[in-house]
Design a protein around this nucleic acid. Sequence first.
DNA 1: CGCATCTTTGAACTGGTTCAAGATCCGTGG
DNA 2: CCACGGATCTTGAACCAGTTCAAAGATGCG
Lengths: 242, 242
Amino acid sequence: MSNNANSLFRPDLARCRNCGVRQFALFNNLTDEDFKLVHLPVEDLAVAKRGILYNAGDTAQSIFTLRSGLIKLVHYLPDGGQRVVRVVRPGGTIGLEALVSETFSHHAEALQDSELCRIPIAVIEKLDRESPRLHKQVLNRWHQAVVESDNWLMQMSTGTARERVARLCLFLTDQETGLCHLPGREDIGAMLGITTETASRTIAEFRRRGVIEFVARNVFRPLPDQVRAVAGLEDEELGAAE
Amino acid sequence: MSNNANSLFRPDLARCRNCGVRQFALFNNLTDEDFKLVHLPVEDLAVAKRGILYNAGDTAQSIFTLRSGLIKLVHYLPDGGQRVVRVVRPGGTIGLEALVSETFSHHAEALQDSELCRIPIAVIEKLDRESPRLHKQVLNRWHQAVVESDNWLMQMSTGTARERVARLCLFLTDQETGLCHLPGREDIGAMLGITTETASRTIAEFRRRGVIEFVARNVFRPLPDQVRAVAGLEDEELGAAE
DNA sequence: CGCATCTTTGAACTGGTTCAAGATCCGTGG
DNA sequence: CCACGGATCTTGAACCAGTTCAAAGATGCG
């Protein structure tokens, strides 16, 4: 909320060009020309695990790019339960609806400690008008959101509990380390449309059958072939955004 | 594919302004100014029930606005089964991905005889560049797609079979007539992630319990309060897009 | 009329839920 | 440093919604 123009936040977009977050970052392919157009502040922002980025209905004046961590977008059900509608990984864009709506339409909560960039919609709107490149980027982002939404439905709401958990493992596996940080069982339930008990049991079974190896609390090393087999896909790619 | 500039299709966008499809139509709030920018053909297009609008992977050179009927967007599963990812009602936009991708990413098939407008992406891109109004519209449409995708997940992939079928009834009920045209049981299954048998049984049960009244083959009159009660919502609105 | 397709219904089976009791983890304060 | 208490995770057993397999009606079309 507070628009502190103080030293806490790195100003300007200059840094964006060298952003560690590869192709994904919203501003990745802008020219110097483009950057000259903007002098509005882009804030660095950290959200701790379990922290709320925003709630549904909050007035929306910024969109966010996720640099590291993991954010879940949630709808609360009439009965008080929750359903995870999508999970955003580093490089993803969060809260695009700010560009067309007064308020956010989900609850955005961190599943892991996360770092983000908060970009005021004024910046986007200006660039959107004046830089064809960014304009295309924005449309792309939106497309991305639809694609991910559809995939989420396919992957996480279709098939047996075993298949879903396996797909979630693949989705959450870091290509670099080959490790998979699972969220709490309750979150898993809300993502897959199953109960926490079933989530727990299924994971236990995977461990017994050697589909995944225990590494640390809620951290596992999936055996790729095994997991894929259980997930019911043999060739499809999953995980790599884009 | 064939760009017949012959008499078969109404040219120009002049008609769009008076389009029967109310607020929803993509070009609803353009000015005369805007319209003057375009002279490219907008084709009328009819697709019969079970007809294919496009397949996943088809080269995408147009987007579509649905004037009447009902279109399902489908993903085929590795095992040959299908999953309905979204259903578009009159006023909705189909194939937006054409604006950012070479190809369509779903299969689009008519659940009922449907009438659409095919709009070449060149038209959209031109207007998008030159008319801020349409530009906003396009973003809005994209937002709409995400919202509908999320809702679809919530409504059709959450809760018991009874709840899902009830929600589908509400979704498909025409406010004008109060009637609900249900698609084939197999389609219902693919929409709700249940088997055709369960779909059939559930509908039969609804009939017995007087939740819906039989009108004609696959046409029912839902008792609104009853259905809502079963759907597990008492106050929420469902159905009215926007 | 006759064949193909779709829908309904039945009955056995099963994956997942539910409810309940332990086990494990973790922060807190003594 | 350890012991306590709350939260989360695991496991068990009974139950039930939904699946599966199979067969009998409908419906529509040439």
